[in-house]
């Protein structure tokens, strides 16, 4: 494992108890990888292959059954508080607090870091504006469309100032137009701030468009492909990668 790794997994296994009790269900089956600072990594795999479970382990919301997970050298589950301010998540659904306005939602991350109201507000305002929500700061989530809510949740993640961004199918709940705009915004926002991002997707095109690297998972989660994408690949190379991924996903 390289010392510079932002996120590293070493032979990670995750088992869930079956509802009936007795036997267990293996969702993650020996995953090893390491992600360097500044990379944008796309995580691809069929539904139910354990992508969200991998995320929850990176975020420390759940611990591995075996193996080790490290984020900036720390155990995100065991040393939960040590990583305060380092990780922000864009969840699959927006998960906005319905009792807070858009701007108060977007400022949540800095609030949890104990930052003052002025700083929170400025950061939240900045990111809401970047994401095209100027004028909607005072709106409550119920008054926003699905796409706007997802943008607030992205603003919340960016405004938290965390170096590591985890995005769980951030564009899948949006209409194609909105998704396309946000994808463009997303990669430039991540890159210009030098952050590390891991995003889950089930779209090969999205992975090719946004990622520096694509990790493809089997079900239960095992690494099937781990491809680094060169900048300015030619069409033929892209198509080759696309076919390789399709072949794995079709298995």
């Amino acid at each position: 494992m390289s010392a510079a790794a932002e996120i590293s997994f070493d032979n990670v296994v995750k088992d869930f108890p079956r509802p009936g009790g007795g036997e267990i269900f293996r969702a993650v089956d020996g995953v090893t990888f390491s992600i360097a600072r500044g990379d944008i990594v796309a995580l691809l795999g069929k539904t139910g292959c354990g992508k969200s479970t991998l995320f929850n382990m990176i975020a420390g919301l759940t611990g591995p059954s075996a193996g080790t997970v490290r984020v900036r050298g720390r155990d995100p589950f065991g040393e939960f508080d040590a990583l305060r301010g380092e990780i922000a998540i864009v969840f699959q659904n927006d998960r906005l607090l319905p009792w807070r306005s858009a701007i108060a939602n977007a400022g949540l991350g800095l609030e949890m870091l104990g930052r003052g109201a002025a700083e929170r507000k400025a950061a939240a305002q900045f990111w809401l504006t970047r994401l095209g929500l100027a004028g909607h700061e005072a709106d409550y989530p119920h008054a926003l469309s699905g796409g706007m809510r997802q943008r607030v949740s992205m603003a919340r993640a960016f405004a938290a100032g965390a170096g590591i961004l985890l995005c769980d199918e951030p564009f899948s709940a949006l209409d194609e137009m909105t998704a396309q705009t946000l994808r463009g915004e997303f990669s430039s926002l991540v890159r210009e701030n030098g952050r590390t991002a891991v995003f889950i997707t089930h779209s090969i095109s999205e992975a090719l468009e946004l990622g520096d690297r694509i990790i493809v998972l089997r079900r239960p989660a095992r690494i099937a492909l781990d491809i680094r994408l060169e900048r300015g690949m030619d069409r033929a190379r892209r198509d080759e990668i696309r076919e390789n991924i399709q072949a794995v996903l079709a298995e």
């Binding site: 607090l97 609030e111 870091l113």
Partner: peptide, 21 residues
């Protein structure tokens, strides 16, 4: 539960969790 987990992912103190969520 999903909102609770979202707030938890920011690693709040107990007081912050109580007040915000």
């Amino acid at each position: 539960k999903d909102l609770f987990e979202m707030v938890l992912s920011f690693r709040p103190t107990k007081t912050q969790m109580f007040r915000a969520m």
